[in-house]
Design a protein around this nucleic acid. Structure first.
Lengths: 151, 151
DNA sequence: GCAAAGTACTTGCATGTGAAAGCAGTTCGC
DNA sequence: GCGAACTGCTTTCACATGCAAGTACTTTGC
């Protein structure tokens, strides 16, 4: 039997490669259909997951695993096209919430449909439901320690 | 039972997230131990996989899934520190091979050890050999269509 | 209550990247 | 052979991103 180390390395390398492939496919579909990048879509989806559909920039940066400055700069165009709005906090004047607009809610729902369709296309050939489910479970264990995730 | 679409979407999102986590861990170890980025390491490993330990920049860009200009710029510092060298082709003056030096061969072997150790650390807790093997197989099917991969 | 420390956000700077253009050399069609 | 098309590489430009510094505000410690 192969040593566990070899299998671990192979899994890691394949995982990184698989992620590139999926990101390319999903990102392409998202850009052509909605004119959005994958990261912008994630930002909107995280907002949608909140009860009030809003988050501060710092909270967003933690959930999206990127710097606060990147969130500031990503939110600007989204605000420009009306998918999110800026909202101040009455108690703490430092906070500048990013809040999902009605147009944003509509958009995120469409985006989710596109994402789901692309995901299904990836697995539709040569995969049984059990295999996809098994992959999902195994990946779930890899990301188990992380919090505030979308899936 | 959940619809296949939901499971596919969950798998895709988890895969993307898992890749970020792994990349962060592996990349950090690589940088601190060897002063190399993950992409530089991949470049060296692809060279090592070739019979003559050399590739043209265009071939490298295809294997690394990045633009030719990025390969040109990535190779320069590696040449500076002596891990790779530039070699012309006698028959075709357009070709500028990137060839692994002896120092590069030593380095890539050390890098592989670090990568394997990190990969093992990721799975060592709460994973059986069968589970890792199963994950590896499933991921293998996802990347099956791609050619010239490291794993 | 006021200064010091901490927090949220923004901005300037440096770096990494892809697309497109430019250059040098090779192959193809005739 | 010779021009046109093609190929490999580099450079320029635009853009995305993290870090560090700057600004405004709040909380803490005394």
């Amino acid at each position: 039997m192969r040593p566990m180390t070899d299998t671990s390395l192979t899994s890691t390398l394949r995982l990184l490669r698989a992620a590139s492939l999926l990101e390319e496919r999903v990102s392409g579909a998202l850009a052509s259909v909605h004119g959005l990048g994958l990261k912008e879509a994630f930002l909107l989806m995280h907002l949608e997951n909140e009860p009030q559909h809003k988050l501060t920039r710092v909270d967003l940066s933690r959930r999206l695993h990127m710097s606060a400055s990147t969130v500031t700069r990503m939110a600007a165009p989204l605000e420009k096209i009306g998918l999110v709005a800026r909202e101040a906090d009455a108690r703490d004047a430092r906070l500048a919430f990013v809040v999902l607009t009605e147009a944003g809610k509509t958009k995120v729902s469409e985006v989710r449909t596109t994402l789901a369709a692309q995901a299904e296309r990836i697995f539709q050939d040569r995969w049984t439901a059990e295999e996809v489910s098994s992959l999902s479970d195994l990946l779930g264990r890899l990301v188990a320690n992380a919090h505030g995730e979308l899936a």
